[in-house]
């Protein structure tokens, strides 16, 4: 039957030559919107990053590399470094915590699986701010966590966790964990378990079979989870803002500050371009490594 299917598939291209006619009308809105409101704005941002800031307000149409040169200054470089550290820490933790979860989830019986999926998805769908607010209540000085810890006599006085680096880290991990879980889940779910059985049959220990077969087979999910966690973790300025209380400065915060208080748009644009390049490299690497075009578990 493969021959038949081949012909059907080929016929698609054959028929198009003739039926193309009015199909352009269906894609026109997408083309128009994408070019006008995605491509063009991004292009403008890139141009903006090479322009000069005006003395008082606005932008002067004068080419400069000054904005990029400024990024290398220790103050800003340090922000990038800190952002990366936090992003890497977040990514590693979500991987370590999320992988087993996604893996176990895929091994559940069918009915429980879809129920578990629902359980994972619901917090995901609730307002991110609401969940951050929940953490504020928990971390607040003399808040729930302090009460519990002091009640258990683990600590004697309030920890003052809110507005600290650990609080931001928890917030990040908490917000991004579902991406990792779902990515790992979707690739584990697709895995051919007979391969693991074959490895076991050939004498591999449970651990060895896991390391050589399972990890390798779920690699696309792991990679896509890493990308899905790492990229946003550099831009989620509001988590650092709310839970860090201004003590933790990320690239996202830097951009926001430049825009709203500093009013230095060209510099903010340059920062964005650099961040965008990082993002593109990560997505490119992901495609290269996993050979998959769309991110696993994205939908």
């Amino acid at each position: 039957m493969s021959g038949y299917n081949k012909i059907i598939n080929q016929s698609g291209t054959g028929a198009e030559k003739k039926t193309k006619g009015h199909w352009w009308m269906t894609v026109a809105p997408l083309y128009g919107f994408t070019i006008l409101f995605v491509a063009l704005p991004i292009l403008y941002l890139i141009i903006l990053s090479f322009l000069t800031r005006a003395q008082t307000w606005g932008v002067v149409n004068q080419f400069t590399l000054e904005n990029y040169a400024r990024i290398v200054k220790p103050v800003y470089l340090n922000t990038f470094k800190e952002s990366f550290q936090l992003a890497i820490l977040t990514t590693i933790t979500t991987l370590l915590v999320g992988y087993p979860f996604g893996y176990f989830m895929a091994r559940l019986p069918r009915k429980q699986k879809s129920f578990m999926m629902l359980l994972v998805v619901i917090p995901f769908w609730t307002s991110a701010l609401m969940r951050m607010y929940g953490w504020i209540i928990i971390f607040r000085s003399n808040g729930i966590l302090d009460k519990i810890l002091m009640g258990l006599k683990i600590t004697e006085k309030p920890l003052k966790l809110l507005y600290s680096y650990p609080a931001v880290l928890v917030g990040m991990i908490y917000s991004l964990l579902p991406f990792m879980i779902l990515s790992v889940y979707s690739s584990t779910d697709k895995m051919d378990w007979s391969l693991v059985e074959a490895a076991r049959d050939l004498g591999a220990t449970r651990l060895k079979a896991f390391l050589t077969v399972t990890v390798k087979m779920t690699l696309p999910g792991i990679l896509s989870g890493i990308v899905l966690v790492f990229i946003p973790s550099m831009g989620l300025f509001f988590i650092a803002d709310i839970l860090g209380g201004g003590k933790v400065m990320l690239v996202g915060n830097l951009i926001q500050n430049q825009l709203q208080s500093g009013r230095d748009w060209p510099f903010a644009a340059a920062l964005s371009v650099v961040l965008m390049i990082f993002t593109s490299i990560m997505i490119w690497l992901y495609r290269k490594l996993s050979g998959v075009k769309d991110l696993e578990g994205l939908l």
Partner: peptide, 18 residues
């Protein structure tokens, strides 16, 4: 046999293929 062109012939008669 499959792949001999019989389905294509049919599709041409139906007009699904030129």
């Amino acid at each position: 046999a499959s792949g001999c062109g019989k389905t294509t012939t049919l599709r041409i008669i139906a007009g699904l293929e030129q």
